[in-house]
């Protein structure tokens, strides 16, 4: 606390008194408080990890799937509590001038706006016109898109023959393990082992048809979907948009 020297000379020259705010003492936080905060943080870490483990155990043992939103809300609530503890005590916002806390709050508001409005668009893009949601064709041919060799890329330049990356990787495995039926059998055995290890139980088609996902391609329907014949394309377009006629929906885009 010794580093606050007398600065009375300024005060008498400070008719507005706005300088007085900068004279607040800097609190030296008690080590017991810091230790208690650390223990609380560790406790919450154990709690949230245990909750996640419990969720898996329940799913495995009782075949009861706890809805995703519960774990999201629970884990994020604990994260917020932990973050509050860190910022309040370790970062000393509790003892600090309010200005620093206000700065941080503004930052969080900006963050909320950013996440909120982006999600507002992406989450409700096909609310009115279905075609804006598109059809799920995740994974193009993973080429260096464009009309050249793409030499200015540090990443791989593989030709996936119009498969998505997941299918391509699977096919590669099958080919490396004898190809054809032999490779497929090897892959199926390995896949079953893998699923058991990670507790993933899948019935029906192994590659998810993603019915639960929001169907989409991006802004332009079928842009990357070369296998869709032209007439099918048009048929889809005319169905989109509920009661709107063909002229209406084609005129929009």
């Amino acid at each position: 606390m010794t580093h606050h020297q007398a600065q009375t000379a300024i005060d008498e020259l400070d008719p507005h008194g706005f300088q007085s705010e900068s004279h607040g003492d800097h609190v030296i936080v008690d080590w017991r408080v810091l230790l208690a905060v650390l223990l609380a943080l560790l406790f919450f870490t154990v709690l949230t990890t245990a909750a996640s483990a419990a969720e898996r155990w329940i799913a495995h043992e009782f075949m009861v799937t706890i809805p995703g939103w519960i774990s999201v809300v629970g884990a994020l609530t604990i994260a917020v509590i932990k973050a509050t503890l860190v910022s309040m005590y370790f970062m000393q916002l509790r003892y600090d001038k309010p200005l620093n806390a206000i700065v941080f709050v503004f930052c969080l508001v900006a963050l909320a706006i950013f996440l909120g409005f982006s999600a507002l668009d992406l989450g409700a893009r096909d609310l009115v016109y279905d075609y804006k949601g598109g059809v799920l064709t995740v994974g193009g041919n993973a080429q260096s898109v464009g009309q050249t060799g793409g030499h200015a890329r540090l990443g791989p330049r593989v030709n996936t023959m119009n498969r998505n990356m997941v299918e391509y990787a699977r096919q590669k495995f099958i080919d490396e393990h004898g190809g054809g039926e032999v490779g497929l059998a090897a892959w199926k055995a390995e896949m079953a082992r893998h699923d058991a290890k990670h507790g993933v139980v899948h019935e029906g088609p192994v590659l998810s048809d993603a019915n639960r996902s929001i169907r989409r391609t991006g802004i332009t329907p079928h842009l990357y979907d070369e296998s869709v014949p032209a007439d099918e394309h048009a048929a889809h377009e005319s169905n989109a948009g509920g009661g709107h006629g063909d002229a209406d929906s084609s005129g929009d885009h």
Binding site: G139, G155, N164, M165, E190
Partner: peptide, 17 residues
Amino acid sequence: PGAFFDYPFAHHPAEPL
């Protein structure tokens, strides 16, 4: 990630993402 993806046992096509 992305075009580096080379894992044969993925289920969902968006897993590289």
